[in-house]
Design a protein around this nucleic acid. Sequence first.
DNA 1: AATTTGTCATTACGGCGGCGGCAA
DNA 2: TTGCCGCCGCCGTAATGACAAATT
Length: 585
Amino acid sequence: MHLQQLPSPSQSNKPASADNVFTHIIASGDDRVSSSGDTLENEPPLKRLFTGMRNPSIALDYVSAARDGSESADECNLPESSQARTDFAFSSAMFAYSGQPLPALPPLSVPYMTPHPVISNGLSYAYSQHYGQTYPNAAVYPGKAQVYLCNRALWFKFHRHQTEMIITRQGRRMFPFLSFSVSGLDPTCLYNVVVDVILADPTHWRFQGGKWVPCGKADTNVTGNRAYMHPDSPNTGAHWMRQEISFGKLKLTNNKGASSNSTQMIVLHSLHKYQPRVHVMEINKSGDEDTSDPDRVQTFTFPETQFIAVTAYQNTDITQLKIDHNPFAKGFRDNYDKCYSGYDSDRLPPTLSDSPHSQMLPGSRYAMTSTLFQEQFVNSYTKSCFPTLSPDPGLVTSNQSQESSLASGQHWLVSSTAAPSYEADINAAALLSYATAGVKGLPFTGGTSTSLDYYTSAAGWDSRGSLENSSKTSSNLPVWVLDTGLERSTQSNYMPEDGEMLEIDQSALGVSKQLEGEDATDSTWTETQSSIKSVDSSVLRISEEAHLKNPSISPDSDIQTVKDMQNRAKNGNKESDFFHFDTQT
DNA sequence: AATTTGTCATTACGGCGGCGGCAA
DNA sequence: TTGCCGCCGCCGTAATGACAAATT
């Protein structure tokens, strides 16, 4: 199997990426905030964010800074249904995102100004990795970080039912919690790793009729912490890359008073939908974040980690998932044996991988024969993972016809065939991992396009979720291409119920078959040994450099860090934090 | 022992409708 | 008599705290 890169006319205004690093661009507009002259508000969001972190007395989240803007929520021209956004975001969740410094955020020239930042749900995730190349590692491309959501499979399980997170006055830990692997950092530089939580949409939600429905506008009167710095911060890139970066201690609360006395808690509003983000910030020698240099702050968003804050669980599916996978809730697994009758992959007994230390769930669990799973998977994965797939062969042809125009184009489309069957479901799961590993999307090059353009018009991404105008707006919308190399004639089209067209290459299904019984999520990843070895060659030099840059960092510790990496590389250890996708299979 | 979990009972709160008083 | 307004109670939902079981 190999990936075919299809050009997009939209690529022309963006130079081909010189490196092969995935780039992730937060949707322009989404993170922009209105400005009313406040000093903080005139700063880029992250600047305000981290200024606040250094000065706890200052409201450190730009959400609150933004709410004072003149724009009201009424002016948020978001589609009524956020489903489409969520679905599309979900598609982005297939990938190990890598970050790019937040784009410049002109404070006043934003057509769409929100009283609070609204996450784009990945609508403008952009990837510029060249086909056939592996992920770079820190030693090769220092400074271009990639972040991998370690427990992504578990997050997916919850995401399918709309994740809920309990918030209490004393603070409640997240489950699943955020856990990342990072690569691409400079092993010798110091970084802070910070998680913040922003509103995912401007809507107040309520659970009605067994599902979440919008109910009024979100309360944008935000007070309290919205950011949580990893306790290991600051530390070297080598440290962050050596192990998973877990935020298990992070607590969520609705106690606004908790903001002043606890940096362990993030203050949220109940029945609001939130999107966690992780920021990797390079800090200078003096120990301060240099947020003025956008290259030093990289932000990553994983749409599958979106959740609704609640004071009590609303969806029993979520409750059951929590009980099933959270060891602290073991006591509620009364009818454990009955529950795990094998009809729902979600109800499979937790394994070691479900432990708080490793929430990864084998991808093979998706391969269940449950009708429920089938429906959910079709609905969740095919609709959401491939909402931008070509609605008709014409688009594919169109894209292909442009292939030669951009030798280094970054316009990718998942081409595949899938019957609306169980088999298609499990294979879609496998495809998911394929996509995770190797499918690229075109960078967001829409220029003047705002997130709203995405929601309302881009690629026909209207309220019906159709793709009628995909060709017109392809400049804005990532199109995923996964070309397995087989003849197009082997393809067939699958039209989901909402009119979206999904093509899944038969060969991809075949390969995915091979993945059954394995961790489909990880099986398509292979260790980047070569890149790690490149670290091996300069163990002492890196250590010395690190020590020179920051004498507080023990050279010994970094030597050990690098040696750890070296050992993992030599062992060919599947538990390696970093993988690359072998597109030559 | 401290912490964390979901459950459960209780309390708080807001929306809504019924009722009565008052003015036109 | 009609319309308006305010008060009151009911009901549903959300928030809170105590609890037992399990983990750290």
